[in-house]
Design a protein around this nucleic acid. Structure first.
Length: 669
DNA sequence: TCGAAAGACTTTTTT
DNA sequence: AGTCTTTCGA
């Protein structure tokens, strides 16, 4: 595929810092991949000195495949294409000693973090799930802004912040005791390390001689600091971003980082990609009209040469049940008429829960579908169990994992035994695993409980010993066999069929572990410890056996759809309170919701259909809804409303009136 | 120690 | 409405 002039300019800009402002569908991934190929083929860079960073595993995987295709396996050797978090993990893996950590650390996922905080706060805050959520959010925000416990404590004002800052300190101390890290630490730790230790920083600057960052508008403060530390004075980097597609501010993303770049690197060269190669002119016009309602730092005018295209449709349905049925019937009718494939269709929605009814409806019609995003696999108890076993196997200090599986399957180690063990460990300030070997335990614990406990810990120690000398795959296999997990599944599942399903998941997990331990053309061999961390980051090599090849309708959230494209898109739940989500309306953050809608619209290549339900069940109650304000912001001439534009509420009438005024004012400006 | 039944809680988005 | 959690009784 040939590059256009702007794309080509962006590729060839290699002597200094480079910012590419790339509108939706303007071929930004193509620029990144071509640039890497260019660097290797024409600029004497070795692939192993180039690092490309993305936000999602999927994006990283696809990019890696594309590059190694055009570069060849040999030249692509050692190329680092990863998510921010995997990059952080790689850095920590090599520098853990400098960071004061022991080898064999555990990565805590959101649930682990939650569980730990729950335990830590039980005495301070009484159990209050809202507060707990606020706390996790606050801790994450502090970390993303590179604020450590001492600073948090110092600058905390108000009772709540003081308590939170104290919890933060406690939490970090506990993580350290477990030899564990959370997701945010994967960015924060390397960043601080580079800030404080020049030697290590230089080593990494030497290793990563060119850095490329995708979806730059999604970076938070700590990520930007990490980038700056990595590129150093040489400032050889390319970042690609689009402020209109910034949809992650809720997790600390700061699209201002696009502006900051100009301040921090005065020699920055900026290129704009404004030709869209994805959507019909009509779809693009609608997207432009929508996003024009947001303020802009960088002006850009996206255009398309792909023909005007069909009008966008707006369908009305009675409720969410009809919505699901309508999508499916529209879709299968359209497919029949057009002779297209299922995989040409995507149904996009705001929240994960909206997929449930769709799934049901698709199942009834025997339509193959794929839900991406949903955590379903790793949320299953059998998968969590095995993951906990693996975590504990590589890190005996992980009390969290210990408590999850010490009695699963049954080992006759009940709550009383564990409580005594726990308080003993607390008393001695050691982990519960280590405590199980202490002689002093004999005084409080009955012989049988102690015997069962020590049998368990001894068994794990032996397995762990084998990790260094033997085939790690065999050790994992033995672990699953030793615990008799399959029998336990059949015992504890409601039906043999359910047990069979669950065992299949265990096998899938085992397969992934095996693949990652072995490595392949694109991926080096890694240790079990790394495998476990990667799995926690949901970074698995090949997706389920049937990733690409299968002809399936795609179901996903708007967030998950970013970066993808589909010929026919259905955008469901286009209602006030759902697409501008109520929470965002209340918090006066409709702009980000508008960007979310923009992302959704710009996924479509040929046809786009909106669906509005007149009523919807929320918390078991029927709510009558009004069409999303975003529908009214689109060019009405290009919209095909099924039953005439419904303008109901006074607010929406006002909205239209205001817009009228605005365009009137524009005439006189 | 386990299963059933009542009760609480959910619905924003992710590494 | 549906799912996850807690509680109670056997």
């Amino acid at each position: 595929m040939k590059l256009n002039a702007e794309q080509d300019a962006a590729v060839k800009l290699i002597s200094g810092p480079c910012l590419v402002l790339a509108g939706a569908g303007s071929g930004k991934t193509r620029v990144i991949t071509n640039k890497i190929v260019h660097l290797v083929k024409h600029c004497d860079y070795l692939a192993k000195n180039i690092s490309a960073v993305t936000f999602t595993n999927k994006a990283a995987r696809e990019m890696k495949e594309r590059i190694s295709q055009s570069l060849g396996k040999q030249d692509a050797r050692g190329l680092m294409v990863s998510t921010f978090h995997s990059l952080g993990l790689d850095i920590i893996k090599r520098e853990y000693k400098v960071l004061g950590m022991k080898s064999g650390f555990t990565l805590f996922d959101a649930q682990d973090t939650m569980a730990l905080l729950k335990e830590l706060t039980q005495k301070q805050l009484h159990e209050d799930s809202d507060l707990l959520k606020a706390l996790t959010l606050q801790l994450s925000q502090w970390k993303n802004a590179l604020i450590l416990p001492p600073q948090a404590k110092k600058y905390a004002k108000g009772e709540r912040d003081i308590i939170f800052a104290y919890c933060y300190e406690l939490y970090q101390r506990q993580l350290k005791a477990y030899n564990a890290l959370d997701f945010d630490d994967l960015i924060v730790m390397p960043t601080l390390l580079f800030k404080l230790n020049a030697a290590v920083r230089l080593r990494w600057q030497k290793k990563i001689r060119y850095l490329l960052v995708d979806e730059y508008q999604d970076t938070n403060t700590s990520q930007y600091e990490l980038i700056k530390a990595l590129v150093g004075e040489r400032a050889r980097f390319t970042v690609v971003g689009d402020d209109d597609q910034s949809i992650y501010s809720w997790r600390g993303a700061r699209p201002e980082n696009l502006m900051l770049l100009q301040r921090d690197f005065p020699q920055l060269k900026v290129t704009k990609l404004e030709q869209n190669y994805r959507s019909s002119q009509r779809i693009l016009k609608a997207a432009n009209a929508l996003i024009a309602n947001n303020p802009h730092e960088f002006e850009k005018r996206l255009f398309s040469e792909l023909g005007y295209g069909e009008p966008l449709k707006v369908l009305f349905v009675k409720n969410e049940i009809h919505e699901a049925q309508r999508v499916v019937s529209e879709l299968s009718g359209h497919k029949f008429m057009n002779g297209s494939a299922f995989k040409d269709y995507a149904v996009l929605y705001r929240g994960n829960h909206q997929s449930r009814l769709l799934e049901k409806s698709l199942l009834e019609h025997r339509i193959p579908y794929k839900i991406s995003g949903g955590t379903s696999f790793f949320a299953r108890s059998e998968v969590k169990d095995i993951m906990a076993y693996l975590k504990l196997l590589v890190n005996h200090n992980d009390d969290n994992a210990f408590l999850r599986i010490v009695n699963t399957p049954r080992r006759m180690i009940g709550p009383t035994t564990l409580e005594k063990l726990g308080s003993y460990a607390n008393l001695r300030h050691i982990g519960i695993f280590a405590a199980s070997f202490e002689m002093g335990l004999q005084e409080t614990l009955s012989g049988r409980g102690l015997a069962a406990l020590q049998a368990f810990t001894k068994w794990l120690v032996e397995l762990n010993d084998r990790l260094t000398s033997e085939d790690q795959i065999a050790v994992v296999r033995d672990l699953i066999n030793d615990i008799g997990y399959e029998d336990w599944l059949y015992e504890s599942s409601p039906s043999p069929k359910a047990a069979e399903m669950r065992m299949k998941n265990v096998s899938m997990l085992f397969k992934w572990v095996t693949q990652m331990l072995k490595g392949d053309d694109l991926h080096e061999k890694i240790t079990l410890e790394q495998v476990v961390a990667r799995l926690t980051l949901r970074d698995v090599l090949s997706r389920n056996e049937d990733e690409e090849g299968m002809d399936q309708v795609q179901l996903m959230t708007l967030h998950a759809s970013k970066g993808l494209e589909f010929p026919y898109v259905y955008l469901i739940g286009m209602e006030e309170g759902l697409l501008p989500h109520q929470v965002s309306i209340d918090e006066d953050n409709v702009e980000e919701e508008r960007r979310l809608a923009y992302v959704g619209i710009t996924r479509a290549q040929k046809e786009l259909t909106f669906i509005v339900a007149k009523e919807r069940i929320q918390y078991g109650e029927i709510i009558t809804s009004t069409p999303s304000r975003f529908l009214l912001e689109l060019p009405q001439d290009d919209l095909d409303w099924e039953s005439g534009p419904l303008i109901k509420t006074a607010e929406q009438k006002q909205n239209i009136a205001k817009k009228g005024m605005a365009s009137l004012n524009a005439l006189f400006d």
